[in-house]
Amino acid sequence: MNYNILGYSIFISIIVFIIVVVGKICYRNGNIFVAALIPDHLELCQQINQSLLVSYYLVNIGYCAMTLIGWETITSPLQLLEVLALKLAIIICILSVLHYINIFLLTNTIHKLIK
C-alpha cells in the first residue's frame, strides 16, 4: 500500500471541498459589496463576481495541486495523519489570512461609500 497516493487523494478531496464551500459563501455574500461598488449595473456586477469566483477556484486549487510535490515519503498511517493535518493546516491558514485581508479592504471601501 502506497500511503503517499492515499494521502494525496484524501488531501485533494478535503481541500477542494473546503475551497468550494468558502468560495460559495464569499460569492453569495460578495454580490452585495460588488453591487454597492458599481451601482446601477446589477448584471455587470454578477458577471464580475462570477469571474472572480472562477479565478479564485483556479488559483487556489492549482496552488494546492502544486504543493503535492513537496510531501515527504510516508511510511505509516500515523505519519499519514500527521502530514495530512499539517498540509491542510497550512492551506487553511493561508486562505483565512487572504479572507481577512479581503474583508478589511471591502469594509474600508464600503465605509467610504456609505459616508
Binding site: V22, C26, C93, S96, V97
Partner: peptide
C-alpha cells in the same frame, strides 16, 4: 464567521 472558522480550524490542525 467563515474567516474565524478557517483561522481556528487551521491552527487546530497546525
Amino acid at each position: 464567521e467563515t474567516g474565524f472558522y478557517l483561522l481556528n480550524i487551521g491552527f487546530a490542525l497546525l
